[in-house]
Amino acid sequence: MLEGRLTHASTLKKIVEAVKDVISEANFDCNDSGITLQCMDSGHVALVLLQLNSDGFEDYRCDRNITLGINFAALTKVLKCAANDDSLTLKADDSGDRLNFVFESQKGDRVSEFDMKLMTIDAELLSIPDNDYDVTIKMSSAEFSRICKDLANFGETMNISADKESVRFGVEGDVSAASVVLRPNETIDEDEKIVSTSIMVKKETNVNLSMKFLKTFANSSLAGSVTLELQDDIPCLIKYVFPNDLGVLCFYLAPKGD
């Protein structure tokens, strides 16, 4: 059986919010080291890879490997009922046909419970090569979100090019063109945390990516910073690392090209 308790239900809420426009249903594979989800969009353009480590849970126990087939529309309905500072306890027995959610307020004076029917999802897993990318950019997730939102109005393809000094996000539309150039820096955000832009380049890179997907994957609520890994003609990796060793949410996006 699986039993996992997250201190903040909002963690799962934000993850589901971030992926529900890309995938409609997916398997959560649970074992004693944590929970993994791998799923592509229906067009095979983007892939979501979620890894939640058992250590990041307040309590976690999974005696046997279990696959939970989840419909995201149903999951969204359940998670909408959680207040942001509620804790969340997930429970499933070995049959894997239902998933139980318990939300508890911080003071313990309100407990709500939901039971969700699971489905059998016939999903093929892909093997993702462990690529050593030519370019690694780490930046504020709010900045990445702003760039994608601003530039999305100008065209359907984002060109990202990076050299040792800067990274350029550019769009060529039918009637206008737009670009944003970022250089390495270090600033202090409103929570007095250091938010830096770092650019590591082994080889100058130039990639074209779908604006629609980038806009979906640019999400400032998941983590304070985002890492972009790029290489010519290789799927781009957009990675959010959760605090307290809870895990990562990765988006892989296939490039555009001739």
């Binding site: 892939l47 290789i234 799927p235 555009k256």
Partner: peptide
């Protein structure tokens, strides 16, 4: 510009 598929890059397990 043509959108490529992830299946061109990642093999099935």
């Amino acid at each position: 510009m043509k959108q490529k598929s992830l299946l061109n890059f990642f093999g099935k397990k």
